[in-house]
Design a binder for these strands. Structure first.
Lengths: 266, 266
DNA sequence: CGCCGCATTGACGTTCGTCAAGTCTAGTGG
DNA sequence: CCACTAGACTTGACGAACGTCAATGCGGCG
C-alpha cells in the first residue's frame, strides 16, 4: 500500500518504537516549531492522497505549528476550549473520559498519523483528556483553517469527513467488544488491533511494546488490571504469546483471531 | 429553547408517541415523496439555526426525497453501498453492528430529528444495520449534495461537523457506560437519556413508551434481557419507576440520577 | 378465542472483581 | 557500581454480579 520510510529494517533487536529520538535543540517559543506537510513522511496517514501540487501547497497551511508533549502530560483536557485538531507526529496517546463521580474510561489509544481532538467540535469544548503515554510531538491544525481550506480543496473536505466517520466506526467496534465479548476475546482483539496498526506503520507484525499500563488496558477493555494480567498469563500458558512486562511477541496470530471470532465448525 | 409544534398538550392519556399517524395516500414511486426543509417543524433538530433566507432555499436541495420504512425493515444494511445520510422525520430506529460469528450489538437508538448513516462515509459502504422499530419516515440526503452545499453554506459545513462530533461524544459516553457501570447504573442512565431526548421533542419528562424489546435494551447496555428485566423490577420495588410492559413512568428522577452518579457524601 | 412473541421470575453456574500478598523492574541516589 | 525504592505487575483465595437455563405469565394480533 505505502512505503514506510523511517522504521522497519531490523526488527527483533530494535523493538517497535514509535518515538523518534528527540531533537536536542531547545525550542525558543514554548513547544512550538514551524513546519510543512508537503514533505512529511506521515502525510499518507493524516492527509488525503492524490493532491495536485497546488492543493498540496494549500494544505501546508493547515498546520499552524508543532507542539511537543512530555510523557504524562496532557495535550488537552476535558472542559478546555476547542480550537484545533492534532495530528500525531511521534509518540503515543490515550484519550479518556470521566464520569462526575470520578470513574474514568480510556476511550482510545492513538499513534503516529492519527488525528485527535474531534470530540471538541460539537460544543467548542473538549469532553475528554488526551494524555501522552510517551514523549510526543503533534501538528496543531486550527479547526477554522481546516474548515476554510476544506471548502476549497474537495479532497480535504472528503478526508475530514472520512476521519470522523472512521472514528465513529471504530467506536462502534469498541462497543461491540465491551458489550458482548469476554475477557480473552477483548484482549485478543486489542492485541490484534494494535499490532495491525503498528504494522501499517512499518513495524513488526508479531512484536510490540505496550505503551500503556495494565490498568489503562483494562480501562479501555472494561476489565480490571488483574484480569488483564491473568488473561495475558493464560495466553502465555497456551503458547499464543510471549510476554515480558510490556514487551509482547505474538507466536500464533491465528489462535488470537480464533479467540476473537470463534469458528464453530467448518 | 424551541417550540415543539406537534406533540405535547395532553400527556398521560396519550403516551409518548413519536410516530405521526401515517398518511393513507399510497405513494406512486416506491416509498419516495418530494418535500422541502424550509417549513419542516423538525428543522431545528437536523439543520443549522440562523440561516439567511437565501441559504434556507439552498438547504432545501439537501433532501432529495423521503422514504418510508416499515417497522422491522431496514433503512440500510451492513455492506450496502453508502450514498446518503438520513434525517429521521418520524419513527424510531436502532443501529446495530455484528461480529463475524453472529453476535450483534445495538450501537444506538435514534428518534425524530436525528441523523443516521454516518458510519458509511469512511468506506463508501455501511458498516451497520439501521432497523425501524416502528413505522418511520426519513429524509434522504445524498451525501454528495451535502458536501457540495456545505462548501457554499458555512453554517451547513459547521453543522455536519457538529453532528459527527456529537456522535463521537455520544459513543464515548456509551463506552464509559459499558466499561465501568453496573447493571442498575446502565439502565438508569439509559432511561434518563431517553426521557431527556423525548422531552426535548415536547414529550413528557416522566413518562415514556419503549420502542424496543428488553433484549435490544440489553444488547445496547451490554446486559442480558433477564438482567434488564430484573433491574426494572428492582426499580419498581424501590418505587423509582412504574413499569407496565413497555410503558414506563419515572416516579423519582433524582433517585435515577443518584444511581448513575452516586454521591458519596457532601 | 387461541396463539406466539415478549416479559418475568427462580435456581444455579461462570466470569470477573476484590482484597491481599508477594515479585519484578527501572530509575535514583549514594 | 550497587543498593534501594516506588510503581507496575503477578498470583491466589474468595465473593458478588451477572449469565444461563427453565418454567411460567401476560398481552396483542389475527
Amino acid at each position: 500500500m505505502f512505503e514506510p520510510s523511517t522504521p522497519s529494517g531490523k526488527p527483533g533487536e530494535a523493538h517497535a518504537h514509535i518515538a523518534i529520538t528527540p531533537v536536542p535543540t531547545a525550542p525558543l517559543s514554548p513547544h512550538t516549531i514551524k513546519v510543512a506537510c508537503s514533505n512529511c513522511n506521515l502525510r499518507e496517514l493524516c492527509m488525503p492522497l492524490g493532491l495536485s501540487p497546488s492543493e498540496l501547497e494549500k494544505i501546508d497551511d493547515v498546520v499552524a505549528s508543532r507542539r511537543k508533549v512530555k510523557r504524562g502530560s496532557t495535550l488537552f483536557r476535558n472542559g478546555e476550549r476547542f480550537t484545533s485538531l492534532y495530528a500525531i507526529r511521534t509518540g503515543f496517546f490515550k484519550t479518556c473520559v470521566a464520569s462526575e463521580d470520578g470513574r474514568d474510561q480510556v476511550t482510545g489509544f492513538q499513534m503516529a498519523g492519527e488525528v485527535i481532538g474531534l470530540d471538541g467540535i460539537v460544543n467548542d469544548h473538549h469532553t475528554c483528556d488526551a494524555v501522552a503515554l510517551e514523549d510526543a510531538e503533534v501538528c496543531v491544525m486550527p479547526f477554522e483553517r481546516i474548515e476554510e481550506l476544506s471548502r476549497e480543496v474537495n479532497a480535504l473536505q472528503r478526508h475530514v469527513h472520512k476521519i470522523m466517520s472512521r472514528e465513529i466506526v471504530r467506536e462502534n467496534g469498541v462497543m461491540l467488544l465491551l458489550g458482548s465479548m469476554r475477557a480473552e476475546e477483548r484482549l485478543a482483539a486489542f492485541l490484534l488491533n494494535l499490532v495491525q496498526r503498528l504494522h501499517a506503520r512499518g513495524f513488526s507484525q508479531s512484536e510490540l511494546v505496550l505503551r500503556m499500563t495494565r490498568e489503562e488496558i483494562g480501562s479501555y477493555l472494561g476489565l480490571k488490571l488483574e484480569t488483564v494480567s491473568r488473561t495475558f498469563s493464560k495466553f502465555v500458558e497456551d503458547g499464543i504469546v510471549e510476554v515480558k512486562q510490556r514487551h509482547v511477541r505474538i507466536l500464533n496470530t491465528d489462535a488470537l483471531k480464533d479467540i476473537v471470532n470463534p469458528k464453530v465448525c467448518n
